[in-house]
Design a protein around this nucleic acid. Structure first.
Lengths: 362, 362
DNA sequence: CGCCAGGGTGTTTACGTAAACATTGATTGA
DNA sequence: TCAATCAATGTTTACGTAAACACCCTGGCG
């Protein structure tokens, strides 16, 4: 108990100490095909055939085998199966963190897609985004029971020539411009950012300020680039971008700085969390959204509709991204090819209440 | 390309179609120990010894083997290894969804903990929380390359006698009162809820209203129970609980209903997202937080400090929960025992700006 | 000087499955 | 009627690893 309880308060409330119950007949040499075969009075090959649903087993035999399986509680040994067949029916996902919405939603989509295809998903988190860490992860993934790998991270960290991808493994990369070397699936970051900026310009705003994501992120870079390009195309002034790091706190800080800019009437935040912080900063200082300042986010996280006010944002179709990652990686696996090129998944704008025409010029 | 692009806009912006590059010598019968042994001029057993860091290999031999490994790009075959050793060095996690913060944060902690112990984490999402789905998941997990299982879900859905846990697999369950049958690790929900309510009472509020989580969730139930018990202990009136479902939208709805209660001065929301919706409802109707109404949440999600106003909430130590899940499951695995009992991880309150003494009585 | 101990390495074997091949027995067609 | 055919099932083998055991050689000690 002392090892499982910290703090007097919790100790007081905790249940009884965990019992130790000796497991009666643990590891009684797991039931194998041979055992089932013996009980059913057939050969183990026949058991294999039944187990894998092969044709050419007479119904009565099949039933005998099935009931023997049930009686013994037989479960195929996936290690042996994998050793024989050479495939694990598992997709590995390598990522840094589950703390960004995008990663989580994508992972969920990947896991669901994979499950539908009969594949399991193995997670390999990398603690810190350093070269060595990533290489370590890949080494382990190589040893791991994995047929294919999906990388959710900045690709520069893993090419630079130092990291060797495990051979015989399909790879799909996200958040990357490495379409010339890998198969890349990603949200159409540029298109989304462009839509956001155009929306604000169409409402009549003179120009649009921008709170960026972290410099290391390719997604962030592309959103920023598209923001700038769209303004330039429209012949508008390009205000200095306000640096952020995806967190609401950084959005808040950006908001504080924006308060110094009296002629700012529209902001495009590179994600919804930063937009949240921005809204708070504006609200705290009495700047009304959208009457005085319009704000657009990016991601469309589930809570975005409950911000104060509900946030107009760019919806990312993570489900689709995940589905295409799995599709891509399995296609490469099955066709024994290596694909290159970039697949972009479109975004769409979700109009809520954080945008409006600018206030009349003074 | 037509299969990888929907929508004209995205099609216009998409990169070139993915190339197909035939992989030159795919599946050239993966390098095995025997190959390394041949090149190094030793037996494969010696390769095995080097590969596993066993002692009793002379340094010169070791170097020969290592360089042969490197030259051939040898990677241990985990299937064969697992077949031989009987363990996969993998922990399976079964859960419904990654859409709740709690699940995600716990999963992340589990994956990190497991990685530290040299274990991989395999995800098995279950689409819908029905009996059959769960059973299906377990069947697959049983066949899966998994030494242990951590279940993040309501346990009632998986006992009821119909689901048979795979034998020879350690299990730890979360969000459950099944400490008498399983090893359960959880946040001290009751303690956290009690702290939240006490905090509000200590500030001088007459009573505390409550927005609940979904009825199926044990965590939610326990928070509600503790809320009620704390009020009763203090001899206060227990207002009717407002039903929620964890989403910000349900918090918003609850907030709308609370606006009908002029004497409500304090609310305990069962999670931060619902608190977010609540704040929005109150703000939209001109009720100031915390001057007129105090709000406390539960979870301490990363954004909570950026709400308007920053949210006072109960911090859940997901990292610790995840760590103990992994610890528990591996301990059972190693000691060959089955543990029962509940381990509670303490919470703590994070004071921000959404709580204050009640306004003076009229 | 010879024997034993033990470190370093090689050989055999088993893990559970499934492909490939072998066998059996019944049916079909000439 | 008998060979050819084919469906149903059995037997052999290989997948890559690592435990168990066998072997050889060196060095120390009686």
């Amino acid at each position: 108990m002392e090892k499982t309880q910290d703090g007097a308060a919790a100790r007081r409330r905790a249940g009884p100490a965990p019992d130790l119950v000796a497991r009666p007949a643990r590891r009684p040499r797991r039931v194998s095909m041979a055992d089932v075969a013996r009980l059913a009075g057939v050969s183990s090959q026949t058991v294999s055939r039944v187990s894998n649903g092969h044709p050419g087993v007479v119904e009565t035999t099949r039933q005998q085998v099935l009931s023997a399986m049930k009686e013994l509680g037989y479960r195929p040994n996936s290690a042996a199966r994998a050793l024989k067949s050479g495939e694990f029916r598992t997709i590995g996902v390598i990522l840094f963190t589950l703390s960004t919405t995008g990663n989580v939603r994508t992972l969920e989509a990947i896991a669901n897609s994979a499950a539908q295809q009969g594949y399991a998903t193995t997670l390999l988190p990398v603690a810190a985004p350093t070269q060595d860490q990533v290489r370590g992860a890949f080494t382990r993934l190589g040893e791991l029971a994995v047929d294919a790998i999906i990388v959710i991270m900045e690709v520069h960290l893993l090419d630079a020539g130092t990291v060797t991808l495990p051979p015989n493994v399909s790879v799909v990369v996200m958040d990357s411009d490495a379409g010339d070397r890998y198969s890349v699936v990603d949200t159409d970051q540029a298109g989304g950012a462009r839509d956001a900026v155009r929306h604000l310009l169409d409402l009549g705003h003179e120009t649009v300020w921008h709170v960026t994501g972290p410099a290391e992120s390719f997604s962030a870079q592309r959103r920023t680039d598209a923001w700038r390009a769209t303004l330039e195309e429209a012949g508008r002034r390009v205000p200095p971008p306000l640096p952020g790091d995806w967190t609401a706190e950084s959005g808040y800080q950006a908001g504080l700085r924006l308060l110094q800019e009296p002629d700012c009437t529209a902001v495009f935040a590179a994600n919804d969390q930063m937009a949240l912080g921005l809204l708070r900063a504006l609200h705290e200082h009495g700047r009304r959204v959208p009457e005085e300042i319009s704000v657009v986010g990016f991601d469309d996280i589930p809570d975005a509709g409950s911000f104060t006010p509900p946030l107009t944002t760019i919806h990312q179709d993570f489900t689709e991204v995940g589905r295409r990652c799995v599709e891509g990686v399995l296609r490469q696996l099955r066709t024994d090819t290596m694909e290159r090129g970039t697949t972009l998944v479109p975004t769409w704008m979700v109009l809520r209440e954080s945008t409006a025409p600018p206030p009349p010029r003074e």
